[in-house]
Design a protein around this nucleic acid. Structure first.
Lengths: 357, 357
DNA sequence: GCCCATGGTGACAGCGCTACCATAACCTGA
DNA sequence: TCAGGTTATGGTAGCGCTGTCACCATGGGC
């Protein structure tokens, strides 16, 4: 199989440095310096920089010129402390390993950046304690808002957010009642939709391959929805393989292999907890010569490009991750502008009926 | 092919809210409140919270108890302004669309989080102007350090970083001389290594499929390295297909299709600018019945799981993205502790000799 | 008995900025 | 002509914290 060969190794680096040599001692110019340079008062300089009204264009120009000359960089710590707005948004995500969250983060960042905001990131690793800890640490920076893809928030975490007195957007899921606002899709409904769809396509022997549901509760909710809708259609799950590991393509491959080995009578169709696993399942079929969907049909969740680009495009549900990020940012911005916003935003999902099921 | 069906739509949300209804007016307790509650002075409360020496354990306990009671959350804006350390690290990345940068970010976050630091994120979208702008905005928060995967920094950007007087880590690439520190691999060398490897395997008709090199300069450097090493081996490129779009699996598929259509005599081996494209190439081969590597061999760059899990594992170069993030964070932490650090850290790459070439 | 080191605590200034109120100059209309 | 606005600017306080210096016990060495 695959073997590895190390071609280059650590530590080509030479030239060691200690900080004394690199950190010059010259202090940064302050607003006072800037004001003096421009021949105006501090407050006028401040207003000019912030583009406030009531400052003559030529005064503004003079201040900007002085700023350029001095290399002045505004200190937002001081500004925020003094009552100015913060433009940081605390973001707590459970993981970056899956493409899902980078995509959400991308959507968030795009919209925030345009409005001059920056995400401050924390990764909870699906650990509620860590999540609570992160929340506290991020709130200490007095962000303008918090975005949270919760891994199961504690009472204290909720209290922390409540008393923080700022917009809070819980993302990914609109099945539960949010602390403040929620943007996402109904995970349960997406599982149900797939069950109805597959059932309608005439499949009868269903199997499930999933990852670590105890930690990834959203995957768990999809599975619940899938199973309950299956029951409504008069079917039952003929087999399942749940692996207590984070999702990956490899996990999908081995999971599929083990599932099929454990089922003497092959299932018609396999529903996966997400597209990573489903692509792994497809790889297994390609590798073992099983024809998809003739021998076995496959369905996933997420609508990843990697599944859509397959020779046999994956039947899956597009979860609008990017859109979730954008809408979450949008909710925050609108709320900060004092506009009225909805408590729950369901961005909706789309069933991508590929060729795999 | 694939058709789409929209099952759920926007705006299930009802219950509109305006901010007046949700933002309670009660101000956050300050250190003064906390000190009063605990019956100590502000400075003692501050020291107790920060776990400084010279505070009696029972005093610390009393302060912590008071903090819990009041729901006190430390204000780090004030702390940092007053001369305490910042624990924010500005991070500027060109993109989150490719798996590479989320992986780097993950490594960064892991190590930073452990030390109580948080990344503040900006995405430059491979735009130098935007990068400069982001840098300035992030520096305004007086971060403890900056991590930058540069898209081509301007003179002013360099000056900004120099005068900021803080640790700066340029990541991904150690081919150029860093402003302060660099952590990454030699992109050029990785391209060269692949050329030598493929050449050594006996391939003679080489082709290249790449994405948007003008923007992704690192991909460009790999290509340069590949081409120059190929020449050293006495070979030349028999064909190339460069598509001015961001990389994706689909792009790899269509790129391969177009390359092969344009080359009457099929190449022995195709080198791709990264694994996304190479996987797309593999999909094309699977779809059209070309045998890999017998009919055409494929090689990529990055060592993505999606390529390694393929029935025919991809020959590629593992770029240690995660490790780059971790080492970058490590450089920062060590520098902040005043330790001596190397100017350049080459984390090294590993050629994964799969079955595809 | 004195000195000094050490441990625990506190008073106070000030980090760099912006909100608030004040002021001066100018304009408008009856 | 002058009350009453509007516009451009400035003085000052204070956001909430931590660094610095100072203070008072206590205790051990000579």
């Amino acid at each position: 199989m695959t073997w590895a060969m190390t071609l280059a190794v650590l530590g080509e680096g030479s030239l060691a440095l200690d900080d004394a040599s690199t950190f010059s001692g010259r202090p940064r110019p302050t607003l006072r310096d800037l004001a003096r340079e421009a021949g105006v008062s501090e407050i006028t300089a401040s207003r000019a920089l912030r583009g406030e009204a009531h400052v003559l264009p030529e005064t503004t120009a003079r201040v900007q010129e002085a700023a350029r000359k001095l290399g002045y960089v505004r200190n937002r710590l001081a500004g925020s402390l003094a009552g100015g707005p913060s433009n940081q948004v605390g973001v707590v995500l459970p993981s970056l390993a899956n493409v899902v969250f980078p995509d959400v983060l991308k959507g968030l960042e795009e919209v925030l950046e345009e409005a001059g905001f920056h995400p401050v990131l924390g990764i909870s690793n699906y650990d509620p304690d860590r999540e609570e800890h992160l929340l506290e640490a991020l709130l200490a920076w007095r962000p303008a808002a918090i975005v949270l893809a919760s891994a199961g928030l504690s009472e204290r975490g909720i209290a922390l957010l409540r008393s923080a007195n700022l917009p809070v957007v819980e993302i990914m899921d609109v099945d539960v009642e949010p602390i403040d606002m929620a943007v996402g899709i109904s995970q349960t409904a997406s599982g149900r939709a797939m069950a109805y769809y597959l059932s309608g396509r005439g499949y009868r022997r269903f199997a499930y391959v999933g990852h670590d549901i105890a930690r990834d509760r959203r995957a768990g909710r999809r599975f619940e929805g899938f199973r309950s809708a299956l029951a409504e259609c008069g079917h039952a799950l003929a087999g399942e393989m749940i692996l207590q590991e984070p999702s990956s393509v490899t996990l999908g491959r081995t999971g599929t292999e083990r599932l099929l080995a454990a089922m003497p009578e092959r299932p018609d169709v396999i529903y996966y907890s997400n597209d990573d696993l489903a692509v792994g399942g497809m790889y297994h079929c390609i590798g073992t010569g099983l024809s998809v969907p003739a021998d076995v049909a496959l369905a996933g969740f997420n609508g990843l490009e990697i599944g859509q680009a397959l020779p046999v495009p994956l039947t899956t549900i597009s979860s609008g991750r990017h859109e979730i990020g954008r809408r979450a940012a949008d909710q925050i911005l609108r709320r900060l502008r004092g506009e009225t916003v909805e408590r729950k935003v369901d961005v909706g999902f789309t069933l991508l009926a590929g060729a795999s099921a």
